[in-house]
Amino acid sequence: MATMVPPIPTTEDHNKVDEKVDYFNLPCPIPFEELHREAMMSLKPDLFEGMRFDFTKMLNQKFCLNHSVMMGPTEIPSQSAETIKIPTANYDFGATFIDHPRLLLLGRVMTDGRVNARVKYDVSENLTFKANAQLTNEPHMSHGMFNFDYKGKDYRTQFQLGNGALLGASYIQSVTRHLSLGGEVFWAGQHRKSGVGYAARYNTDKWVATGQVASTGMVLLSYVQKVSEKVSLASDVMCNYLSRDVTASFGYDYILRQCRLRGKIDSNGCVGAYLEERLNMGLNFILSAELDHRKKDYKFGFGLTVGE
């Protein structure tokens, strides 16, 4: 009888050994609120209607001024099926102070009376404090939010405090090199509502899959395939098992040498595209389009962005 020769180890066998999980050396996951960030880049571009002009002036390395002009129609609530729009024009003035890498101060004033403010301060290497506020003349529309983010070696946690007795907390933990699991809980005292949510995220160099479910009825699934370094395809399914509403979307993100093109289409018959063309150093041209065939609502916009 011939002697049985043991198989020669191959490269695949070595890779299987190398893929053994080191639970004491796991990567830190992304924040819970950014679970779907790759999908949102393609599926949620900053679409607008009309004309937009943004100008940023750097005064020094830490301080800059921002000017923004927006002219276009604004939708107003209506009981009819048709969308009613009125022409509007707004001017926004803002200032930004960045003391890299620990402090960020941002303020913005609009001609309609709104004032926005944002603060981000790194208290330590692991602890970050964030604050967002909006003041407006409309009753019960002003709000503020305070966040405390703690970044551990292989986990992240966040505590939120907002007006209207809003309390929230989230936690996400890396389970393996590619898989992370998390959960969140919130309480809105003013509206007497509470909720609990769970999430899972699996990411590799080529694709990212995320799932999220909440007791409010929301279920969100997203998937992003990185075709190459410059091309990404994304899809998501959002549903509410209480109201039986379901929406599916498909999008793409294509980065060329001088421009970036993003677009999406969803199951409601809405198609959108967003193009950023770099004309020169510090000068970008923007095109935006959104076609809602079900509502017969068509939006087109163009703009210029000056400054870095």
Rank of each mutant, 00 (worst) to 15 (best):
T216A: 14
L59M: 12
L166Q: 11
L181K: 11
I172K: 05
K130H: 04
V21G: 04
V219A: 12
H36S: 09
T136K: 03
E19A: 15
D122R: 15
N66I: 10
T176Q: 08
N15V: 04
L59D: 07
K20M: 12
E125P: 02
L104C: 04
M40Y: 08
S42C: 04
S243W: 01
G269I: 01
S180V: 02
K85P: 01
H14S: 09
D92A: 09
S42G: 10
E12C: 06
D297R: 14
E75V: 10
G164K: 12
E138P: 01
G50F: 08
F32P: 03
V271W: 15
F24E: 06
E33F: 06
N15F: 09
L179A: 10
I265Q: 13
A165R: 13
F129L: 08
I286E: 05
F146P: 01
E38T: 09
H36E: 11
L167W: 13
F146Y: 13
S78T: 11
S170L: 00
L106N: 11
K206G: 01
T157M: 14
C270D: 06
T210E: 11
P9M: 00
R108F: 02
G303A: 06
N15I: 02
K296P: 02
L35V: 13
N240E: 00
K296I: 02
W207L: 05
V123T: 04
E38S: 13
L291Y: 12
P27V: 02
P45M: 07
E38H: 14
D112N: 10
T3R: 14
D99N: 15
L59Q: 11
L59Y: 14
L261A: 08
